[in-house]
Design a protein around this nucleic acid. Structure first.
Lengths: 197, 197
DNA sequence: GGTGTTGGTCAACGCTTGTTGGCAACCGTA
DNA sequence: TACGGTTGCCAACAAGCGTTGACCAACACC
């Protein structure tokens, strides 16, 4: 019969002995993709960080593309803006984004790769379409203007991430989260709710 | 004596027979760097585009780094804001940037490489410091706030470039230059001239 | 016409990359 | 104890990379 090296758990999930290795690979991959971008983040370097053989990466994730897809499964966890005071949506969004970027290097990884790689750019388009657009729809008055207004917000928020976390411009790093919310909040607020100029 | 294959011209410059080749290499390099980023833009591909041998690139530019440095010698040609009506500086800057990006793929190249490459990021820091900061100094009231305010402008403008020219978000591409100036102009204006929030 | 510089091609170098297949150790089951 | 699936390492592959040096064809000067 089939040898079973996995144990059923209380919730019905199975835990295999290799899960720790898988997790180590994913963590190392996120680090490397965030720090180096897609091309310079080599499978060999990732494997070295995870203290395993490069061939294990292939066995568990199929290919480098597969590894990247598994490593950056991005959920922005955007708040429900219908539950937020209407003139606070700008500050709320900026604050939420800042918290996300500060704690989560997957975002830096996906932005870096998006700037290098065609597949990465398409992934960012997907995130925009599936996660930011619906939230913008909650607060925009005119449904027809939703994509344009959401794109303006994306430009401002991704521009902040680019200068602060990728290019690392010193003045962009010097600003505190509170200052950034105070400066960018009204901008995003205007892009989402102000009448067309 | 030294053989002379170059001709003096009316303005005192000399024109060598190889200048056409040099120019072809630089043009191809700009294309490739802009389209593919630093790593994927290979010397071999650039040489193929320029219809010469890869070794010529090495002879004329020393190395791949040297080629990149020569290919993207970036001058933003920012306008003198002291000659612009004070409440027009935002719109002026946004319009100028848009014109630059639309016609000039060097900017896409340097942004893509800045997102991938440590040296590229430092180059962008240099551009910010040497070209954007002085212009911001022309219009900011408080000299101490100049770096922060310039960084905010950079975030907004580079974010626009990122979403429109690198990630190519469809809604960001759909907006006309006029609409973008109308939306982003007031933002940049506020970052530069409004009192601290 | 000989000479030395220039513009250019060609073949190769050493290296790194993603990827593959074989092989040894492990471990629960029978 | 024997079995067979799982985990892991090792060595190698083909391809592509930046880079180098030898070599040849023009050409300008003495």
């Amino acid at each position: 019969m089939l040898a079973n090296t996995s144990w059923p758990t209380l919730v019905g999930m199975t835990v295999r002995r290799s899960d720790a290795t898988r997790a180590a690979i994913l963590a190392a991959a996120r680090d490397r993709f965030a720090a180096d971008g897609y091309d310079r983040a080599t499978i060999r370097a990732i494997a070295k960080d995870a203290r395993i053989d490069p061939s294990m990466v292939m066995r568990y994730f199929g290919s480098k593309d597969g590894l990247f897809a598994a490593a950056v499964a991005l959920d922005l966890r955007l708040p429900d803006l219908t539950r937020v005071s209407r003139d606070e949506v700008g500050r709320t969004l900026v604050g939420h984004f800042l918290g996300l970027w500060e704690e989560n290097e997957e975002l830096t990884a996906v932005l870096r790769v998006g700037a290098t790689n065609e597949a990465g750019a398409e992934r960012m388009q997907g995130i925009f379409r599936d996660q930011l657009l619906p939230v913008a729809r909650q607060v925009c008055p005119d449904p027809e203007q939703v994509p344009a207004r959401a794109a303006l917000c994306a430009a401002q928020l991704l521009g902040l991430a680019l200068t602060r976390y990728v290019l690392r411009l010193p003045p962009a790093r010097a600003l505190t989260p509170e200052e950034l919310v105070a400066w960018l909040g009204p901008t995003v607020q205007r892009y989402l709710t102000a009448p067309s100029p």
